[in-house]
């Protein structure tokens, strides 16, 4: 049982590291601000989930786990809020996204 938890947690940690790295590469490669934000959101959402998930498995049922879970919840609450604020601030300042093709709002009523 111990080794199974160990293996799963290492798997989570390494895949978390991989996704974080991909997000960093994406933030460099993407052509403009809004597409870069998509790459950054890979590091901001799946990265913390996997890395902190792996650490929680390592810690077991302790106070450390509760603190880690609190950090995870906090990151997942604030991350989208910060990117939201960033996107709307960029939009308000007249930063136009380069669109491939304007899609008409099909869902708009």
């Amino acid at each position: 049982m111990e080794t199974v938890i160990d293996i799963v947690s290492w798997l989570l940690l390494t895949s978390g590291g991989f996704f974080v790295l991909v997000g960093g590469v994406g933030a460099l490669r993407m052509p403009n601000l809004y597409t870069r934000m998509h790459a950054a959101s890979v590091t901001d959402s799946i990265g913390p989930i996997l890395v902190i998930g792996g650490l929680i498995l390592q810690a077991g049922m302790t106070l450390v786990s509760i603190k880690l879970a609190a950090i995870l919840v906090f990151l997942l609450l604030t991350g989208p809020t910060a990117s939201n604020a960033l996107a709307s601030a960029a939009m308000l300042s007249g930063h136009r996204p380069g669109l491939a093709q304007k899609m008409s709002a099909e869902d708009e009523s």
């Binding site: 991909v22 998509h38 899609m103 709002a105 869902d107 708009e108």
Partner: peptide, 19 residues
């Protein structure tokens, strides 16, 4: 998104819509 970032041609086609 990982596939897109790691593919050499970077096949992005950004869209905007209202929901």
């Amino acid at each position: 998104v990982t596939k897109i970032v790691l593919s050499p041609s970077l096949p992005v086609s950004p869209r905007i819509a209202r929901i």
